[in-house]
Design a protein around this nucleic acid. Structure first.
Length: 210
DNA sequence: CGGAAGATCCACT
DNA sequence: GTGGATCTTCCGA
């Protein structure tokens, strides 16, 4: 059997499943960004699932629907990009069928290609700490220069896409509560954050290694 | 129409 | 560990 190219895009059918399954399945995949004739590649190492209506931490909680989150209600396979804290963007992959509002937040990746350009994109007052190019959802978008222009675009084509990459086996996936959702009541504790076990590029230290 | 909060990051103590 | 930056979005009045 011929091996699948790591740069072959994942089809929309990959995303039309429950967010939790997609969040696990996205670990190890490549997030590919064509920018100014260069190809930037991050290997995804941390994701979070947001379940939509029943999930108080979700932008689609209780069916909330506004111009900002409209693309969250598209079918699985589209990007949902939002602006937060007056200065950061966050990238999600929409999951499930249209109208659900479930998605996976891409929280962290490790550089595979185009590291130099990512460092330049990340420059704040000083240079980013070495090895911390995309350890967080805001940083990830900075490194790849992702903004609202990608909101509602398909992730299997175009200058921003997710490809087959280098999937990780189930036993190498750690799960725990999501970050920054303390306001979400009971949902804050749901173990919907996933990461490659032991990976250095994960945004926040893993609570407990079971 | 005003206020408050936010799926974050950085700098400093 | 704490606080500030920074501004869009949203909800309640």
């Amino acid at each position: 059997m011929r091996p699948v190219s790591p740069f072959r895009p994942l089809p929309p059918s990959f995303y039309r499943r429950p967010a939790e399954a997609v969040a696990r399945g996205l670990l190890g995949r490549y997030l590919v960004r064509d920018l100014e004739g260069e190809r930037l590649v991050l290997r995804l190492v941390e994701t979070e699932a947001y379940l939509g209506g029943p999930d108080r931490a979700s932008h689609a909680w209780d069916g909330r629907r506004t111009p900002r989150n409209e693309s969250l209600y598209l079918a699985g396979g589209y990007a949902y990009v939002y602006f937060i804290y007056g200065m950061h963007f966050c990238l999600n992959a929409v999951t499930g069928e249209a109208g659900i509002g479930s998605a996976v937040l891409l929280r962290a990746g490790e550089p595979v290609e185009g590291e130099e350009q990512m460092v330049a994109n990340r420059a704040w007052k000083r240079s980013p700490r070495p090895g911390d190019l995309a350890g967080g959802p805001g940083k990830l978008c900075q490194a790849l220069r992702i903004d609202r222009a990608f909101d509602g675009t398909l992730l299997d084509r175009g200058p921003l896409r997710i490809t087959a990459g280098d999937p990780v086996p189930e036993e190498a996936v750690a799960a725990g509560p999501r970050i920054g959702v303390d306001y979400a009541g009971e949902a804050a504790a749901w173990p919907l954050r996933f990461a490659v076990r032991g990976n250095r590029h994960v945004s926040k230290p893993w609570p407990v290694a079971p």
